[in-house]
Amino acid sequence: MTAPVFHITVHGTPGPQGSKRHVGGGRMIESSAKVKPWREAVKSVALDALAYDEAWMPLSEAVRVDIVFTLARPKSHYGTGKSAGRVKPSAPEYPTGKPDLDKTVRSTLDALTDAGVWRDDSFVNAVSATKAFPLTGSDALAHPGAVIRVWRLNTPKESESCPS
């Protein structure tokens, strides 16, 4: 498999985007207070990564995006007393609560668009997204955040001027 064309690790609490609530006067605001800081964190890390590639042009071709979101375990997953800080054997292996995976992907893709990773997130042709608890699998971080990789889907064509 080829290497990703873009790869970043973002630290912070992943925030979902999509649910809105009415606040009066025809105004709607995001239901999650976490979406704005998350989008800013993703955008900031992406901009920093792109700053090292002077030739970077926003992608305008089909891409695949892989994201592993690491979410904090609830306090109820940990023991107390002598077992404080240890995950209970009965604690679930996988996150099943909020945030919704699809809404968290949406906020992340929009932040990557804002950063200039691609011209528009309509170029995202395939997405693989996973929620994990800290250090529980491949790419799961030690604390909340995300590992994001982007691959080009098109195979570069040989130049017409190359001899056969």
Rank of each mutant, 00 (worst) to 15 (best):
V105Y: 00
K103C: 04
G137F: 03
R152T: 05
G12R: 05
S138H: 04
P134G: 00
P95L: 03
L109P: 03
D110C: 01
I148V: 11
D102I: 00
L59C: 07
P58V: 06
S83Y: 08
T13I: 07
A49Q: 12
R152L: 01
D139M: 05
E93P: 02
E40D: 15
K34I: 08
L109T: 09
N154Y: 12
G12F: 08
A41D: 12
A33T: 13
T136G: 06
D110Y: 03
F123N: 03
K103L: 14
E40R: 14
V117P: 02
I29V: 15
Y94L: 06
T9L: 05
V63H: 04
S19E: 15
A46E: 02
D120R: 09
L59F: 07
H77C: 09
P156E: 01
P144N: 12
S164D: 12
K103F: 13
S107I: 05
S31T: 14
G145I: 04
V68Y: 03
S161Q: 06
I29N: 07
P74F: 02
D121H: 05
G79P: 10
T136V: 05
V150F: 10
H143W: 10
P144D: 03
F6P: 14
R64Q: 13
A129P: 00
P89S: 05
R119E: 06
T13R: 06
S159G: 14
T2A: 14
V68W: 03
V105H: 01
A3N: 08
A146D: 05
T70I: 12
L153M: 15
E30T: 11
V45G: 03
R64G: 09
S90Q: 12
Y78G: 15
M1V: 11
K82F: 14
S32F: 09
S44M: 12
P99H: 00
G25V: 06
V10N: 04
Y94Q: 13
S31E: 15
E30C: 07
E54Y: 14
R119I: 02
T104G: 11
S32V: 07
G85W: 11
A140Q: 00
H143F: 11
D48R: 12
W56E: 10
T108F: 09
E158M: 03
S83Q: 12
A146C: 12
W56L: 00
E93H: 05
S19L: 14
M28D: 09
D53I: 14
D121P: 08
G26W: 01
P92C: 13
P134F: 06
L112F: 02
L50T: 13
V23H: 08
A3S: 10
H77K: 03
P4H: 10
V23P: 12
A111P: 10
S44V: 08
A91D: 00
S164L: 03
E61M: 07
A46T: 08
R152Q: 04
V147R: 09
P74L: 03
L153G: 10
A49M: 03
E54I: 12
F69E: 04
S90E: 11
K43I: 09
M57N: 11
S138Y: 01
V35Y: 02
A41T: 10
S128N: 07
L135Q: 15
P156T: 04
D139K: 15
S19A: 13
K75M: 09
